[in-house]
Computed example of a mutant assay.
Amino acid sequence: MKLSTPHLLDGSAIGLSGLCLIHCLALPVAAAFAPLLGVWSEAEWVHLTLVLLAAPLSAGALLLTRPRRPLAIALAATGLALMATALSYPDAETLMTVAGGLTLAGGHLVNWRGRAVPPHAHST
Rank of each mutant, 00 (worst) to 15 (best):
G38H: 12
L53W: 14
A116P: 08
P67H: 04
D10S: 06
L53V: 11
A34G: 02
G11W: 14
L64K: 13
L64T: 09
A86S: 05
A77W: 00
A92W: 05
P28Y: 08
P35Q: 03
L64A: 06
S12G: 10
H7D: 14
L71Q: 05
A105G: 10
P28Q: 10
I22M: 11
V117S: 09
P56Q: 01
W45Y: 03
L63E: 13
T94P: 00
A86P: 01
A26V: 08
L36G: 13
R115S: 13
V46L: 10
A72Q: 07
A59D: 08
G18A: 02
T78E: 00
G106P: 02
V46D: 01
L62N: 11
T97V: 10
L102I: 05
L16R: 04
A92D: 03
C24D: 05
A76H: 00
V110L: 08
L63Q: 14
A13W: 14
L27R: 04
M83E: 09
G100N: 01
A31R: 13
S17L: 08
V46N: 07
I14R: 09
E93C: 02
A31S: 15
C20H: 03
T103I: 11
I22T: 10
C20Q: 08
R115H: 09
P90H: 10
G18M: 06
P35W: 00
E42Q: 13
M96H: 02
L52E: 09
H7A: 11
L48H: 06
